[in-house]
Amino acid sequence: MRIAVCPGSFDPVTLGHLDIIERASNLFDKVIVLVSFNPAKNKAVFSVNERMEMIQKVTSHLENTVVDCYSGLLADYLKMTGASAIVKGLRAVSDFEYEFQMALANKKLYSGAETVFLTTRGENMYLSSSLVKELASFGGEIADFVSPEIHDFIYERLTGKKEQN
């Protein structure tokens, strides 16, 4: 079985993340969407459990996708789960330099780790969790950036109020 891990902070999960996850689910037998976190750096807006719940909601249509969390080294997680691939989305050339370094480090730590880079679709090139948080915190509309299943939850958390339709 070909198992891939899509790691990230997903604070919150965006349509860009979902696009990469969906495409990975077409390439691998099983995809683990891994909420990575560092307990020493608690700067996330959403808790690990909230992020996992949001991902579960937006990936419920993908039968070969599961959600998990981990706070250790990604290479160790791959060994532990039997995964052989790390799937990372790239928005721009600037993403590649950092992700390439991480791919080399993961390969060094675990020789069975292969990193697969999927380029984002054009409409998602500028999309990030940070952008969603900033827009919503100012009351901006985020419907084009997050799935409808989690839109209201994100909006209410970041604005402190229900959206007026």
Rank of each mutant, 00 (worst) to 15 (best):
F96D: 01
A136K: 10
D76Y: 11
V146I: 03
V48M: 09
V93E: 03
D152F: 00
I32S: 01
V146C: 07
T81M: 07
A143H: 14
V33I: 13
A105L: 15
P7G: 07
E63W: 00
Y70D: 06
T65W: 02
R91T: 04
S94W: 08
S25V: 09
L27D: 04
M125D: 02
L118Y: 06
S130Q: 11
K161Y: 05
Y155E: 04
T59K: 02
L104Y: 09
I3G: 01
V33Q: 06
P148G: 12
S137T: 13
K88A: 02
Y77A: 05
I154V: 15
Y155S: 06
S137N: 12
M52D: 06
S84F: 09
E53P: 00
R23F: 14
H17V: 10
E114V: 10
K43F: 12
V66E: 14
P12H: 11
Q164W: 14
L127S: 08
V87Y: 02
L104C: 12
A113Q: 00
V87G: 00
V13N: 03
G140W: 00
P148K: 14
N165D: 04
G160F: 12
Y77F: 15
Y110G: 01
G112L: 05
G16I: 09
E149P: 00
H61E: 15
D11L: 06
Y70K: 05
V48S: 01
F10A: 07
E99K: 03
V132P: 06
M102N: 05
M54D: 05
Y155C: 10
H61M: 10
S47A: 07
R23I: 12
D95I: 01
